[in-house]
Design a protein around this nucleic acid. Structure first.
Lengths: 144, 144
DNA sequence: ATGAAAGTGGGGATAAGTGGGAAATTTAAA
DNA sequence: TTTAAATTTCCCACTTATCCCCACTTTCAT
């Protein structure tokens, strides 16, 4: 399980160090994808294959579903860590997530998320505001 | 599994580089076909044969189905990569997909898609608008 | 304080994408 | 049938991006 929040920077060559704590669990084969809320998701390959299989099994007849599947699959990239544990972030994904130099890498259960630092801070603030409501929901599902 | 999004250009001789990442998996024998939503599909030969078989197995009773199947099968061309990994796009397919100079080549699970850049950008925007619905879908299938 | 590990930065080799000339082939026209 | 035009194929060259390697700095733990 991935846990923790790290502040890293993207260098002039579009490289980003994956926090060393995560590298072992990620394994050698990694998939970087378009995530939710303007973030990117990083999965170990096996985990991603589970998702890709489900996506590809959705009915291709409906235009909306087709578009969705297309966006998710085309928005994914199989990438590799370089010798020093860095990844190269493709242009279209960097654009999608509005990544600038400072980014946040967080562990979220079965994946990592990559956020632009400012978006992350804004998102956190917004979520904290809703904390009370969230607490209620959590109670409902029997957490805590 | 084909994944990713690449921006390439068609040169004055109607040639298009296939992203090198895809070449190995495509193999030597390739089929280029009229796709859905004004794109072209590119399949490894074996994969295409599977699909052609499915298409031809559809009930031919309904005129609409018959027409669709005919269009898909008739629009297919077997093509080859040149020494540098480029394909030559036949006139009628280039016209169908409205390809200009800048095109996007995407990996979508078992095929590649070729889009005119502007059409692709417009399509992405349209699909992204439905992000909320998409997120719900994601929850439904247990992805993420 | 010291050593080891992690993050950051950059030079240079290699590969990929792009463009164009010229030979070879095909098509059309005379 | 021959000639001319157009298209395709093969080849080579240029530019840009990616990969590999090394080195410096910072952080953390001993």
């Amino acid at each position: 399980m991935f846990l923790g929040e790290y502040r890293h920077s993207i260098d002039t060559k579009k490289r980003l160090s994956v926090p060393s704590k995560f590298r072992r669990e990620l394994g050698g084969s990694i998939v970087l994808t378009r995530g939710l809320d303007l973030s990117l998701f990083l999965y170990p390959r096996e985990e991603w294959e589970r998702i890709a299989q489900k996506l590809s099994a959705l009915p291709a007849g409906q235009a909306a579903t087709r578009g969705f599947v297309r966006l998710m699959l085309a928005g994914a990239e199989e990438i590799a860590l370089d010798v020093l544990g860095r990844i190269l972030i493709p242009e279209h994904l960097r654009t999608y997530a509005r990544l600038r130099q400072q980014v946040i890498v967080t562990g979220v259960y079965n994946r990592l998320e990559i956020w632009d630092e400012q978006l992350w801070n804004g998102y956190k603030k917004k979520v904290e505001k809703d904390a009370d409501m969230l607490a209620e929901k959590l109670g409902e599902i029997g957490a805590f």
